[in-house]
Design a protein around this nucleic acid. Structure first.
Lengths: 179, 179
DNA sequence: TGCGAAGACGAACGGTCGTGCTATTAACGC
DNA sequence: GCGTTAATAGCACGACCGTTCGTCTTCGCA
């Protein structure tokens, strides 16, 4: 890994954490550069546009998400235990990544839901992937006999994500520790 | 109502709608002024600071919310029908207000959850009020015999809001019309 | 040992932001 | 109708934004 790549990773790491607090639009080239002890133009040269920086930041957060949530949860036994594992890893992943602003994608979803462009498109794709991952785990739980065979996997994943969202929101906004 | 108040209301109306798209921080004095055919300083004079504008905008959205959701829903029969009415009015209220950016408070919650200051404080208060309103309606539904007496009203309201959130998100981000 | 490319820097650009001032115009009570 | 006051406009400011450009350092490789 060349020196440029090392710097680039450090930038993205910091940018992703910051974006959970101030949003992807709230990221500033100068601010990031200051935090990392770089010059504004030095940092800019890694991406050549702010949009490219946002895109790269989201890709970075995506791979982080897979490492911190999907992979660990897949190590749990098939069926309901794995679903519970998904839930717990999802709730824990922001702080596991050292990001104090909550889930990167929840913040991005609220920010980008009515904009357009490639950044939004990427987010939509990742959210669909996530719901598919959940629905697939539900399907397994059904075939394992943990759930009644008449549950709709997509609908269940959907509602499960709803509970995740409201838990996330109450935890963060109301500072209320009831899970 | 004097002329100043009329103008002020027009500003807040537009600001609230815009904030559902670009966020409270994304509001700009100059942009609002242009949209309304005012001068930047003329608009500014109504609030004397951007934070005061944000505060006033949120208060405005609050009273709109009461008019568009709480009051109509309270006209439904006590118990479960009223809860369903809450759900439906909540889902419909952004477009009823002519705001294309989704629920004002959902957007604000994601934006302000890790900031601090009076704007956030006001939002937290309003979110608590909303959950209390829901929980109260659940309590009524229990006492009417529509729900089993062992349901925890707060917990139920909480989960119900979760379903609202995920529905809102999927509607807006994924453009998926399944309610 | 020297060279070329990669990486970072510093200054500057046009633009927009929130926020003061002062002047001008509009509305409203007597 | 007039005078007072509220409402709005005009202008300028310092700060910060993303972006560009030319320069300088650093380092692997011939």
């Amino acid at each position: 890994m060349g020196k440029g790549e090392v710097t680039r990773n450090a930038i993205l790491e910091h940018a992703a954490g910051l974006a959970t607090k101030v949003g992807l639009e709230g990221l500033t080239i100068g601010g990031l550069a200051d935090d990392l002890g770089l010059s504004k133009s030095g940092l800019f040269a890694h991406f050549n546009s702010k949009e490219a920086l946002q895109l790269a930041t989201m890709e970075f957060a995506s791979s982080r998400f897979v490492e911190a949530v999907v992979k660990p949860a897949l190590r749990a036994p098939r069926g309901e235990p794995r679903l519970r594992s998904f839930f717990e890893h999802w709730l824990a992943w922001p702080q596991k990544s050292g990001w104090s602003g909550g889930c990167f994608f929840v913040a991005a979803a609220a920010e980008l839901d009515d904009r357009s462009g490639p950044v939004r498109d990427l987010l939509v794709q990742r959210q669909k992937d996530w719901l598919d991952t959940l629905a697939h785990a539900v399907r397994i739980a059904v075939s394992e006999g943990h759930f009644r065979p008449d549950v709709d996997p997509d609908q269940f994943a959907y509602e499960m994500y709803g509970v995740m969202l409201v838990t996330h929101q109450c935890l963060r906004l109301l500072r209320d520790p009831k899970a």
